[in-house]
Design a binder for these strands. Structure first.
Lengths: 174, 174
DNA sequence: GCCAATGTAAAACGATCGTTTTACATGTCA
DNA sequence: TGACATGTAAAACGATCGTTTTACATTGGC
């Protein structure tokens, strides 16, 4: 169980750093310190490995962004970007590299993004005790923008997103 | 001159739809209706072709987003996404697929992103006749967020970005 | 003490990768 | 007319792709 997790931890940085398609199985097995036979027994295929990496990342993401206010959410995002690296959303990158044609990848992305929207919705509901779907949409855009923008402007973009979010929230409170 | 442009127009949808690494030269030459010999004479390598595609896209992008107000900017972005497809920023995707290790790609991305920030800066300066770098950062985040978010929520995210932008602008005006 | 499971190491599979080369057909300009 | 540039078609290059297979070592449970 944590044998599989160890493989995923070793492999994820390679995908993140070099891209999914550009990471060959040879280098993946080398990094994991595991024979290709074992890797295929546990994950079935390269696609299966990619999906497992995404699922594990989602798990980590959820625990790191388990906060109660909008401001804390974007503060946590900045920490996440600073720690996990600023190379763009790994889920959307996987989706783009596979053209949206791989069901396992599509499913992993949908799961993550559905959770993300729910979490933001929960926070907004607590903070404004109204639904305010429009605000949720706007905060989601800020989240994606910080994640993407960090790829070329660094983790500091997250604080721009945070400031914008604070303004939007206090404006919505009216 | 427009011979090269015709090739780029034929090839860009393949990169966009299937990813850069997943698009083999055989399928690219087929789509362009050109022999591989000719393609290599004009672009040198697959990397050169990718960079040329990005440069041409940047050219198209600049003319399409040549507007004077923040609201018009995000309206134009929504049109762009609706027409060019909602698969995430092609520049950042290229950067991610190549791991930031390909100078020609890095240069193309930097050029695009530098222009993007300047354009937003120009618009903000006209609309508020103050510099307001903080607002520029925030609008840049909204732009990237709409582009990325459209990949899984469709072009409508652009209008959420647009609403958020309007709020941030009128708030900045004080 | 042995069977079954689980691991490694390494070779091999056919397919496809990006790129170059060979051979040939055009049209243009001196 | 004849050389040159520019195009196509197609084969070939070695490398690498994702995956499977062969052969062997180690372990834990009945």
């Amino acid at each position: 169980m944590d044998f599989k997790k160890a493989i995923l931890e070793a492999v994820e940085p390679l995908f993140d750093r070099n891209g999914f398609m550009a990471s060959g199985m040879d280098r993946l097995t080398d990094a994991a310190g595991v024979s290709s036979r074992t890797l295929y027994k546990h994950f079935g295929s390269k696609t299966g490995l990619m999906a497992a990496v995404l699922d594990e990342r989602d798990r980590r993401f959820r625990s790191r962004l388990d906060v109660q206010t909008v401001d804390a959410f974007f503060a946590a995002l900045e920490d996440w970007i600073r720690i996990e690296g600023a190379r763009g959303c790994l889920f959307l990158r996987a989706l783009g590299e596979t053209g949206g044609d791989t069901p396992e990848i599509v499913a992993a992305v949908q799961t993550q993004k559905a959770f993300l929207r729910e979490r933001i919705g929960d926070i907004v509901r607590v903070q404004l005790d109204e639904p305010r779907e429009d605000l949720v949409d706007q905060l989601l855009v800020l989240f994606e923008g910080a994640t993407a923008g960090a790829a070329y402007r660094g983790p500091e973009v997250a604080s721009a997103a945070r400031e914008a979010a604070d303004i939007l929230v206090s404006n919505a409170r009216k």
